[in-house]
Amino acid sequence: MTIVSAPIEPPSVEPPLSLEPSSRRLGEKAIVALLFAAAALAVLITVGIVLAIAGPTVEFFRQIPFSRFFSTEPWAPNFVPDGFGVYSILAGTASIVLYSCMIALPAGLGAAIYLNEYASHRARKILKPVLEVLEGIPTVVYGLFALAFVAPLLQQIWPTFLPGKLGDPPGFQFVLSAGVVLGIMIIPTVASVSQDAMSAIPGGLREAAYGLGSTKMQVATKVVVPSAFSGIVASFVLGLSRAVGETMVVLMAAGAIANLTLWPNDPVLTMTAFIGRTATGDVGFGTTTYYTLFAVAALLFVITLVINTISIALVRKFREVYE
């Protein structure tokens, strides 16, 4: 800096010093307003959905008592005699989530670890886009895949030597075939979100681990995975939510029989599949069946909310902070 030594001639005509804004910056204000409107719209729509579900749900519980809905009675809202025990289709959803996540979470995490820690630069450059393309395949295609390929295969190789119920060969539509395919469908989501989290950890941590003589496996399991834990949990939750919410694959491949069971070789009806196949236009407005749709939707909404809340708490508790 030469300010002190250089002689500075003040300019002869000096404009008065002004620190006020040189223009009113209307453009910026307009953009801020637009952005705010976008954010507000998202919130408003969510509130709208909740309200739209809440009304008919309240009406449902006016007609059918809580004690019948939350019960093990058969699920048959549009039959005579009717039955509204939601546990049957809750079990269907739980069963699908169980089998699909048993595949998707470990495989997705494994794929992420492979991509991030083991794959060569070239392999990664090819595999990552492939994963992202897989995420875009319409779910109805996966449903066909389950029906035409996975179900017959599982029927053929079913371990019939197993004792009891587990040894019974499955029929044409059953939980495991839908679960397996749904699991495969979710792997890319889990893998890609987990890997993003892993690649975001500071490079210094990986260097430190290698510098201490860690093997690749040790770097991955003791440093990378714990450091990326919150992102990995996020990917699991995303996978779980997709399994809970998936409709098409289960509608096509898991059967359509409400069944209070977790056996892999049973057909089930999930909550989403119930909504999907019932809400087809020939449901009369104002019938009990109509209100049942909303009650089930409300329950789905609450379940997803609970999953997300738990996961946020988990992430807070176990996050390994770095700066």
Binding site: L205, A208, G211, E320
Partner: peptide
């Protein structure tokens, strides 16, 4: 690397 340790320019403790 197990015999020859290393300390880096930027402190990089593990988040543990």
């Amino acid at each position: 690397r197990r015999r020859i340790g290393m300390v880096f320019q930027k402190a990089n403790p593990f988040p543990k």
